[in-house]
Amino acid sequence: MKKIFFALSLVVIFTSCTSQTKLGNPEVNPAEIQRKFMDWWTYQYNEIMLSRDFVALDSNSKEITKEAFLKVLSEGNYIPIRLESDKDVFYYKLFKIEPTSDTSIKASIAETAFNEIQNYKKEGEPFPEFSFKDLNDNLITNENLKGKIVVVKCWYIHCAACVKEFPDVNQLASKYKDRKDIVFLSLAEDSPEQLKPFLIRKPLSYAVVPNMKTYMNLTLQLNAFPTHFIINKKGFIVKVLSDYKALEVALVKVSEE
């Protein structure tokens, strides 16, 4: 009887150990990446997507909520680094900002995290009521978009980052062109007179709604551009994202639900 119990215990221990995710070292050296602002900025831009879903770890590798993680970052004393993992999951850990690090890094992280907190708090809320006309004079309202997943890009002509991602978001829209239940909509600050010649030079595959500055600033309370919303078929905000890479990942998940 004791032998059987011992054998079962080994099986349980082995199973529980193998089911755990093995976390490795930081992807980059936390001290080295802080020495030059451009090194940090490049790493953050290419590898850290605070808009997306990730497992948040404090400086002692204890799991915490995403909101708590972002709050710590907004205080400007830590940087986020992704850990190597044996699973296709993002694990971000907090590392202390070194006294010798570039001072611009601290300000950059704090600003980014503050904006991400505001975006994260919008998730789960109903998207504010709207009644827009796009550049083709099509009426777009909450009512006529019911039952559809709506992807919203908020931007303006003189936002370099907004325009730079046009080819990528156009490709994303093309990927879902056969999905009649997914709508791509963009809200722009600029007037029709400004947008029409601009979009001839820089095409955007979304329906474009002009004169949205007041709505985006006051109703949506946006602090940074571009900002992307994914709204579910019931009209609730599922994700608020700051770049197309995070948008692409999130849309795959939402479109399969």
Rank of each mutant, 00 (worst) to 15 (best):
F37A: 04
K62F: 13
D53V: 06
Q118I: 14
T42I: 09
L94Q: 01
T103D: 05
N115A: 13
L135N: 08
E63I: 07
R82F: 03
Q44N: 14
T100N: 11
T103Q: 05
Q34T: 09
V55G: 05
K87P: 09
Y45Q: 14
K87T: 12
T42D: 11
E84P: 07
L73K: 03
S101E: 04
K93W: 07
E63Q: 11
M38H: 11
K121T: 15
N77L: 05
I81V: 15
E27H: 11
Y91K: 09
I97F: 02
N77G: 00
A107N: 07
D134L: 04
S74T: 03
E63G: 00
K122Y: 01
L70E: 10
F127S: 01
Y45E: 07
R35Q: 15
D39A: 11
I105D: 04
E98G: 06
Y92T: 09
P128L: 01
T21L: 02
D88P: 00
E123L: 07
E32D: 15
Y91I: 08
N142E: 07
P26E: 05
F127K: 00
K62G: 12
R35C: 15
R35D: 15
F114G: 06
K96C: 07
R52F: 09
P128N: 05
K93P: 08
K121I: 14
V89H: 01
K62I: 10
S61H: 10
K96M: 14
Y92H: 04
S131K: 05
I79A: 04
I81G: 12
S101Q: 07
N77I: 02
R52D: 14
I109C: 04
K62S: 14
I64V: 06
E84G: 13
S85F: 08
T21N: 13
N115L: 14
L83W: 07
F127N: 00
N25F: 15
E47K: 08
K106C: 01
D88W: 02
Y43M: 08
V72S: 08
E129C: 07
F37R: 03
F130V: 01
